[in-house]
């Protein structure tokens, strides 16, 4: 990571034109997140010695892994364009956590069944989202927002308001270290990122996804199945959300109602910090993962400083606002 930064910085300094140099800095989507992470890491170490040691970095990466997984679905939905956004991620994750715990009921042998059930439920939720957006014509923001209350309601109805079921060791192992700061969670997240990276960039579905996000009408006129592709994307987001919930409960060890509701907005923030434009048609999973690391790092630093939760939220909001002002301003009206 350090080497990467060094290379980038050298490349930028070598550019003679000052304005051009700045535009390269502005146009490099990964650079801000990488720099921000390193600065935060350094800051954390200064404020609270031990912040940058292996164990704590492992912790941060583990927490960031869960967010990165959740952001995979969000990235794909945002890439699909048409104001695509999935506000139901948090609710679906909470559902995955609670229902997963309840399906498994403390027996490791039931894990596969739980996974299959969660995949089916997640896909069904995504399908309803896609149906409302593509067939009824409800804006994604509103559709997925309403699905949030439906899914939360479903979770409460299923669990009767009482989280139940112990988490088996197999699942709890996701939080355990393998070597140094590397935990199973990180390996799992990388595997998911690589798998979906391949799906997005190498498969016919993925290529369609980018084209649809870039220009819906042109895609439609080219005979590309817009409705199908978009619906599949929301289904993928639903499935990933449900499984991310299961992983989350493995990491925390106990399930609570609405335990993951923060992940909706965090996942969007991670995607945006990672350089993906809300307009669609462009975006990378690596960017989202870096965004997840920045956000997690920021929270950890704020916790390390010992700030109360309110101030943490305040600082997070202001930080995101600054990033937006610096990186995602629309062109001026007067050209």
């Amino acid at each position: 990571m350090f080497k990467l930064v060094e290379q980038q910085v050298k490349r930028i300094i070598s550019v003679p034109n000052k304005r051009l140099r700045w535009s390269i800095v502005r146009n490099n989507v990964y650079l801000p997140s990488v720099i921000a992470s390193l600065v935060l890491l350094g800051l954390g170490q200064v404020i609270s010695p031990g912040f940058a040691d292996f164990n704590n970095i492992g912790n941060i990466l583990a927490v960031a892994s869960i967010l990165a997984i959740a952001a995979v679905g969000q990235t794909m939905v945002i890439v699909s364009g048409g104001e695509g956004i999935d506000l139901s991620v948090g609710a679906v994750m909470s559902m995955g956590a609670l229902l997963g715990a309840s399906f498994i009921h403390g027996e490791a042998s039931r894990l596969p069944i739980a996974v299959v059930l969660l995949v089916l439920i997640g896909a069904a939720i995504g399908y309803i989202n896609g149906f409302g957006i593509q067939w009824v014509g409800i804006p994604p923001l509103v559709m997925t927002l309403i699905m949030t209350s439906v899914v939360n309601g479903f979770t409460v109805a299923y669990t009767k308001g009482q989280p139940s079921g112990a988490i088996p060791k197999v699942l709890l192992a996701v939080g355990q270290p393998i070597v140094g700061p590397i935990r199973w969670l990180l390996v799992l997240a990388i595997a998911i990122l690589v798998a979906f990276g391949i799906i997005m960039n190498k498969t016919s579905y993925g290529k369609r996804l980018f084209l649809i996000g870039s220009n819906r009408n042109a895609a439609l006129l080219s005979g590309i199945s817009v409705r199908g592709t978009v619906t599949v994307t929301y289904m993928i987001s639903g499935v990933i959300g449900a499984l991310a919930g299961l992983i989350l409960v493995g990491y925390t060890g106990n399930a609570q109602l609405q335990m993951a509701s923060d992940y909706t907005l965090l996942s969007i923030a991670a995607v945006v910090i990672g350089g993906t434009k809300l307009a669609g048609g462009e975006g990378t999973l690596v960017g989202a993962a870096l965004g997840a690391i920045v956000l997690t790092m920021l929270t950890s630093v704020l916790v390390a400083v010992g700030l109360p939760q309110g101030v943490r939220e305040l600082v997070q909001g202001l930080t995101l606002l600054l990033i937006l002002v610096a990186y995602s301003r629309a062109p001026r009206l007067r050209q």
Partner: peptide, 27 residues
């Protein structure tokens, strides 16, 4: 082919080869 390139023709943020292959490869 539409005359309204911006709205109905090009996938503006995507590459030339992606634009060219949209129908033949993906459809």
């Amino acid at each position: 082919i539409s005359g309204d390139r911006e709205k109905e023709g090009v996938f503006s943020v995507r590459s030339l080869s992606e634009n060219l292959a949209a129908v033949k490869e993906l459809v």
